[in-house]
Design a protein around this nucleic acid. Structure first.
Lengths: 297, 297
DNA sequence: ACCTGAACACCGTTCAAGT
DNA sequence: ACCTGAACACCGTTCAAGT
C-alpha cells in the first residue's frame, strides 16, 4: 500500500519526481568536455532565458545556441517543460541556505536576508517568478532553501504547524511581489516605455475614462510599492504569531507547575495584542485541496 | 511636457492604456444580438480558459467556439494578449468592492473577506493567477477592487504611504499563494495524480535521492499550507504597523498640545512591540524600479 | 463595416535513420 | 550511445480579397 509501485502510476508531475531521476540517460557526473550534457544544456537554457525571456525561448533556438540540431536536446530532456524546471532549480542554487544553528543570529534578520536574497534572485532572472506559477518547484536547491528558512522560523518559538503557515505567508508574498514587479517591468520594456511614463499613462487613463469610476487621488499611491515595508509587515505578523504561541505555552505550563523555566523566553509574558484572539491555532490545517483540479471541463 | 502626446510614443503596455481605449472598433454599448462583439468574445475566452486552461487556449480554438473563422476575432482585438487582458479583468469583475464607509464594519473582517474573495476567484479561474504575472492588471474591475481594499486599510489608522505597503503585502501574498496552489493542482491534474499521491512521491524522493541532503522530518510540514493562518499573519502585521503609526502620531500631537482628542483611537497608547523599531517609516519608498528592464541582452 | 482564405514564419514533438 | 532530417500537427499574425 505504501511501496514505490504507486509512483509508477503517474505520468509526470515534475522532472524531480520521476521514477529513476537524475540517472536517466547518462551519469550526471561524467567528466567529458565534448558533446552535450544535462548540465550544459541547463546552463545554456538559463542564459537564453536571461537574454530573451520566456517568450524568446524555444527548443530550436536553444539548440542553435548550443551549435547542435534541434532534436539533439531531446536525448537529454524529455520535454521542454522538464528543461524549464531544471533551469528554475539551477538559478535557485544561487541562494545561500540560511544557517539556523548560527550562534548569535537573530531570526528576524535571517528571515529578512533570505527574503531579500530570493527577491534579488527573482529580479536577476525575471522569468523565474513566472515559472513558480507553472511548476512544482521541488528541486533540490529550492527544497534546501525552503527547509533552511523553515528552520530559521522555528527559532522564533513558533510551533511547527504555524511555522509552515508563516513560511507560506513569507514565500507567497515574495513570489507574488516579484511576479507583479517582473510583469510590470517586462511589459514596459517590451513596449519601450519607462516605468514612469507607464505610470503617467495609467494615471491619465484612470482620470479620463468613465469605466474607472473613482477619482485620481487614490491612484497615485499605487505607484509606490515598497518591498521593505511589506516584508517588515509580514515579519511583524510572524513575530506576533510566535508571541501568542509562546504565551499560550507559558500559560499552559504555568497551570501545570508554577515554577517553570519557560518564562525566560523573550516576550513570553507579553499579552496578545490583537482584539480578536490573534492567530487561530485550533483551526484544522488542510492539505492542499485536491478537489476541482483544473483539467478538461 | 505633461500632455497626452507622450503616451502616443509607446506601442502597447496594456489594452487598458491605449490612446482611444474602449471605443476602438465599435461602440461597446451597441445593442445587436447578431454578429460578434468584444463582450461576447471576452466571455467566450473566459469560458474556454476555464475549460481548457491557458495551454488549450488559442485564437483558432476560440474562433471555432464562436462559430467563426479564426481571423474574425482580429477585427475586435489586436492581439491575443489583449484578449487575455480583457478576460482577466472580466473575471475580476466578479469581486465585490468592499464598502469602506460601512457603519459598524471592522476593517480586519473586511480585509479578511476581500482577500478570501480574491482567493476564491483565483481558484475558480486558475489561469488568472498566472496572468497576474504576465500583464499589468490595471483594468477597471481590478483597479476598483484594489482601491476599495485600500480605502478599507486606511480605516486601520495607517497613513497613506504605509497603507500602500500593506496593500502590496496583502495582494502579493494572495497572488503568490494562489499561483503556487494553482500550479500544484494543475500539474497534478495534468498528470492524473491526486495531490496526496503527489505529496507522497515528493516525500519518497526527498528521502531517497542524495541531491536532497536533509532528512525527511522537516519535509512533511510543507504539505500543509493554510491560507487562513498565513492571511491572519499578514493582518496581524498590518495591525501592528497601524498601531505603531498611530502611537507615533499620538506622541507627536501630545508633544504639541497636551489636551488632544487623538487618544480615543484604540490601541494608540500601546507601545511598539518589535525589538528593532518595528516598521521603518522613514525609509524612502521607491517607485517600481526602472533599471534593468528585461529585454534583449 | 465586417468576415474570409491563403500564406508566412514559426512552434513542440515523433519517428525512422544515420554513425 | 549519440545525433540528424524530414515530417506532423499545430501556433499567432499579415494581407489581399470578398460582401
Amino acid at each position: 500500500m505504501s511501496d514505490g509501485s504507486r509512483t509508477s502510476r503517474m505520468r509526470r508531475t515534475s522532472v524531480w519526481l520521476e521514477e529513476r531521476p537524475g540517472a536517466r540517460r547518462r551519469a550526471l557526473g561524467a567528466g567529458h568536455t565534448e558533446g552535450l550534457d544535462r548540465a550544459k544544456i541547463t546552463a545554456a537554457a538559463v542564459r537564453l532565458l536571461d537574454a530573451e525571456g520566456p517568450a524568446g525561448f524555444s527548443m530550436r533556438r536553444l539548440a542553435a545556441e548550443l551549435g547542435v540540431t534541434a532534436m539533439s536536446v531531446y536525448w537529454y530532456v524529455d520535454r521542454k517543460d522538464d528543461l524549464l524546471e531544471l533551469a528554475l532549480d539551477a538559478v535557485e542554487g544561487e541562494l545561500d541556505v540560511p544557517d539556523a544553528a548560527a550562534e548569535g543570529a537573530d531570526w528576524r534578520e535571517q528571515v529578512r536576508q533570505s527574503a531579500t536574497a530570493l527577491r534579488g534572485l527573482l529580479k536577476r532572472h525575471p522569468w523565474a517568478s513566472g515559472m513558480l506559477g507553472s511548476f512544482l518547484n521541488v528541486g533540490p536547491s529550492a527544497t534546501a532553501f525552503q527547509l533552511g528558512v523553515r528552520r530559521v522560523l522555528l527559532r522564533s518559538g513558533l510551533p511547527g504547524e504555524q511555522a509552515d503557515g508563516a513560511l507560506t505567508s513569507l514565500f507567497s508574498f515574495v513570489y507574488g511581489h516579484a511576479a507583479v514587479e517582473a510583469s510590470w517591468l517586462s511589459r514596459c520594456g517590451e513596449a519601450g516605455v519607462s516605468s514612469e511614463d507607464c505610470l503617467h499613462a495609467l494615471r491619465d487613463t484612470l482620470e479620463r475614462r468613465p469605466e474607472y469610476a473613482a477619482g485620481g487621488e487614490a491612484v497615485r499611491p499605487l505607484e509606490q510599492r515598497d518591498f521593505g515595508v511589506a516584508l517588515e509587515c509580514v515579519i511583524v505578523g510572524i513575530e506576533a504569531m510566535a508571541r501568542a504561541a509562546s504565551a499560550a505555552t507559558a500559560a499552559a505550563s504555568t497551570a501545570a507547575s508554577d515554577t517553570d523555566g519557560a518564562s525566560d523566553r523573550e516576550g513570553a509574558d507579553a499579552p496578545v495584542h490583537t482584539e480578536r484572539g490573534a492567530v487561530p491555532k485550533d483551526r484544522p490545517a488542510p492539505v492542499i485541496p485536491a478537489q476541482s483540479a483544473p483539467g478538461d471541463g
